[in-house]
Every structure is written in structure tokens, then in C-alpha cells.
């Protein structure tokens, strides 16, 4: 398929997942701030912003509304609204390779944003977050049922999985300096939609190290880092039509993903908490490098050259 379309599909996957996960993180954090009086809203908000890679504003004290405004409503880079916009832009340029239902879903989502924002300002941010989560779920469902399992699908899933790893790592980053008994760990599980599954798996015992284990290493839960890495890896595997490599990994992206996956796969659970911060940062670096490697291998992006004043100066 066309490299440009492949790139768009990859980024559609990433942006939709990013919007979804950011909404989930915010939904849970905002309500924790509201319900738990012992949390300092300003500190918590700033930490969340820095983990999401958004520059916190200087000076003013942040509260729940300020946080929502910044992360959800503003058109600034990294916000939910900007992710939705970018996802739509990418779908628009790749309309011939996505199903029209999928395009409609994204487009309707983008069109409904202003109205949902007004509703959220009236009755509370939850309104907006559920809207984003619902639409993202609808997008996933439509993609699943209307796209044939060709390379386009693989790029979409690849993007989604890579972004998922990134976002789960960010969720964990936002809690990493909480004490192990902090109720904040529940919020990580809630953000990942993993609360019920976790409770059933571990019989209700809530313990920070198990939460980290579950979200990083669980083999079965689709939003665990391990599962997402594995899925990304299998997409790359199927995309690789070249001759099978006899020694080492053929492609850099596959090598990076495989290494990160096997690091988690064969790690002793007891060792997970040693240098957790370092491990999370490594994963984040891996995600970035995978992104670059995929783009080099498949998208062949050429720098745009301006041919102005191209006189030959001797």
C-alpha cells in the first residue's frame, strides 16, 4: 500500500488511542481530586501535566477546572481535542483506504466536540470524558468489523498498540512516587479499565506492586504493556514481507519491540520494583525509537525541500 496512507493509518491508531487514554486518565484523576479531600489539587495536577508531556502554566494555582481546560478542552498540542483533530485530519487524507463508516465515526466525533464541551462546562467534565471514551470504543468496534485484515489494518493496530504502551507507562509514571498503600493506585487501574479484572484476579487485595505487575506484565489483559507490545510485534511480523532473517532481527522496530517484550516476559516478578522509574523511562524511550524505526522502514518520509533561489553559485 501507499506509504503515505500507511503512515496515516498508523497515526489514526495512535491519536484515537491517545484521546481515549487521556480521557480515561483525566476522568479518573479529576474525580479522585473531587472525592478525596486530602489530595492537593495543584501538585497533583502539575504532576499529571508533566507526565502527559504538557507544559504546566506558570504562576496560577491549578484546580480541577484548570486541569480539565488544559488537557481536554484547549486546542493545544497534547490535549484531547488536538488528538481528535489530528485523528480526523489523518483519516481525511486516507479516506480511500478506510471504510466510510469509520470516517463518519471520526468526523462525527470531531464535529460534536464544541457541543460536548459546552455541556461539560455546564454539568461537569465527566460528560466530555465519557463522550470521548464512547466514541473511541465505537471507533475500535467499527474498525474491527469493517476493515479487512490487510496491511492497512496492521498499521492501524500497530499505532494503537504502540500508543497504548506509551500511555500505560505514563499512567504508572504519574503514580510512581506514591506510597505503596496510597489509594491512588486504584485510580491507575480505573484509568486502564482494569479495576474489575484486577480485583477478580487478585481477589480484592490491593497492593501497589501487584498493580504495577498487572499493568506491565499481565499476559491476558489487553491494556497491559506486555500484551500491547506483543500485539505490536505480531503486526510488524505480518507486515514484514522480506526474506526471513537468518541471524538477528531483520528490522530495527521489530528488534526493539521484541527486546522490550522479552525483558518483561522473562523478568522475575519480584525484581520488577527494583528501579521501577528507570524501567518505565526505558520503555518510554523504546516507544520513541520504535516510532522512528517504523517511520524509517515503512513511511520513507522525505524532508520537504524548498527549491527557491536555486541558482548555481560558483
Amino acid at each position: 500500500m501507499l506509504a503515505r496512507n500507511a503512515e496515516s493509518l498508523y497515526w489514526i491508531g495512535r491519536y484515537v488511542e491517545r484521546a481515549d487514554d487521556t480521557a480515561r486518565i483525566l476522568d479518573v484523576s479529576v474525580h479522585q481530586l473531587l472525592e478525596d479531600a486530602t489530595v492537593d489539587a495543584d501538585t497533583a495536577s502539575r504532576r499529571l501535566l508533566s507526565v502527559l508531556g504538557i507544559t504546566p502554566p506558570d504562576g496560577s494555582t491549578l484546580d480541577v477546572w484548570g486541569l480539565t481546560e488544559l488537557v481536554a478542552m484547549s486546542p493545544e498540542t497534547g490535549s484531547i481535542v488536538s488528538s481528535i483533530g489530528s485523528a480526523r485530519e489523518n483519516t481525511r487524507v486516507a479516506r480511500e483506504v478506510v471504510s466510510s463508516e469509520l470516517w463518519q465515526c471520526i468526523n462525527a466525533m470531531w464535529n460534536a466536540v464544541p457541543e460536548r464541551q459546552r455541556a461539560a462546562r455546564r454539568v461537569g467534565p465527566h460528560e466530555f470524558f465519557t463522550f470521548v471514551e464512547d466514541r473511541a470504543a465505537m471507533f475500535a468496534g467499527l474498525a474491527d468489523s469493517t476493515m479487512s485484515r490487510d496491511d492497512g489494518w496492521r498499521f492501524l493496530v500497530l499505532g494503537r498498540s504502540v500508543e497504548r504502551v506509551d500511555m500505560i507507562v505514563r499512567m504508572l509514571m504519574s503514580r510512581v512516587d506514591d506510597r505503596p498503600t496510597s489509594p491512588g493506585w486504584v485510580t491507575v487501574l480505573r484509568s486502564a479499565g482494569a479495576h474489575d479484572t484486577y480485583l477478580r484476579t487478585y481477589r480484592g487485595a490491593l497492593d501497589a506492586s501487584r498493580v504495577v505487575q498487572f499493568l506491565l506484565m499481565d499476559r491476558l489483559f489487553p491494556r497491559s504493556v506486555f500484551h500491547a507490545l506483543q500485539q505490536a510485534e505480531s503486526c510488524l511480523d505480518d507486515l514484514d514481507h522480506g526474506p526471513a532473517a537468518r541471524i538477528g532481527a531483520g528490522a530495527e522496530a521489530a528488534r526493539l519491540l521484541g527486546k522490550a517484550r522479552s525483558d518483561l516476559e522473562f523478568l522475575r516478578p519480584a525484581d520488577l520494583l527494583d528501579n521501577l522509574t528507570g524501567r518505565l523511562q526505558d520503555l518510554q524511550t523504546t516507544v520513541r525509537e520504535v516510532g522512528e524505526a517504523v517511520s524509517r522502514q515503512y513511511f520513507h518520509a522525505v524532508p520537504w525541500i524548498e527549491w527557491n533561489n536555486a541558482e548555481v553559485n560558483l
Binding site: 507526565v51 512516587d177 506510597r179 505503596p180 522509574t277
Partner: peptide
């Protein structure tokens, strides 16, 4: 108390 790691982002 001490957390699981340090959040020096």
C-alpha cells in the same frame, strides 16, 4: 512514606 520509585520526570 517512600514511594515505589522517584518521579523525576
Amino acid at each position: 512514606g517512600p514511594g515505589l520509585g522517584t518521579a523525576t520526570v
